[in-house]
Design a protein around this nucleic acid. Sequence first.
DNA 1: ATGGTGGTCCTACCA
Length: 281
Amino acid sequence: MASLEGRDRIVRFSLATWNINSVRLRIDLVSRFLTEQAPDVLCLQETKCRDSEFPLSAFHKLGYPHVAICGQKGYHGVAIASKIPFLENGRRDFCAKGDARHLTVTLAPLPERPITLHNFYVPAGGDEPDPAINPKFAHKLAFLDEMAEWMQTDKIAERDAIIVGDLNIAPLETDVWNHKALLKVVSHTPIEVEKLGRVLAAGPWVDALRHHIAPEEKLYTWWSYRSPDWAKANKGRRLDHIWVSESLKRHLDGLAIFRESRGWERPSDHVPVLVHLNLAG
DNA sequence: ATGGTGGTCCTACCA
């Protein structure tokens, strides 16, 4: 294959994000998704295991030799598996709690054009949307504030960059099955939506899902386990996001919400979201 | 208005 500096040139590539809700329990679902869709990069959230317990060899066998892991026992945990090598990787401890909620790698599909990728698992925030009485909600709001400040001071979106992950907020009215019914439900309250909007504007970032799908259209990536017939009730929310820097906007080249995986046996309550980027031109 | 399900790991806690 033609290469510069000894590396392959990958002009068109795809990137997926999926809250897997235990990577060990659902490694067969991951395998099925990677076999069927073959994204170049897969970002996972809620891996729920220590780094030493991560099913690395399964990813290697599936053709993903490059894996970055940031895990902890039982909760949270993020990982990035890739066919494309990482030039560097790192993490940041948002809110200084020691939670495994962020992981970053630099990819170079074109050697002369590195792209920084950030994988996030934003705190869910508990049930009560009042930071004065619910420390989990206060943590979520503080996490969002720190994200906005960090991306401004570190100028994260001024280079080629992508943010993905379970941001645990459905910002638009069409990102939930019933806007009015969810105004006081954590994930769709006005204060969360406002703070997420500030994070988006702090890049500024382009919301890749809404770049492809009009904001008037309903769009979900998560359906609760507590609904006996999730597909029929269709009470979903768009909690999973892919944002790209303005510099990458013109390279967005397709989107897929892998809804069918919600109907698989013992599914995650989130489905994979996948974007294509074409760096030609 | 309430409770509905499912993860980790063994006792509740988290989503």
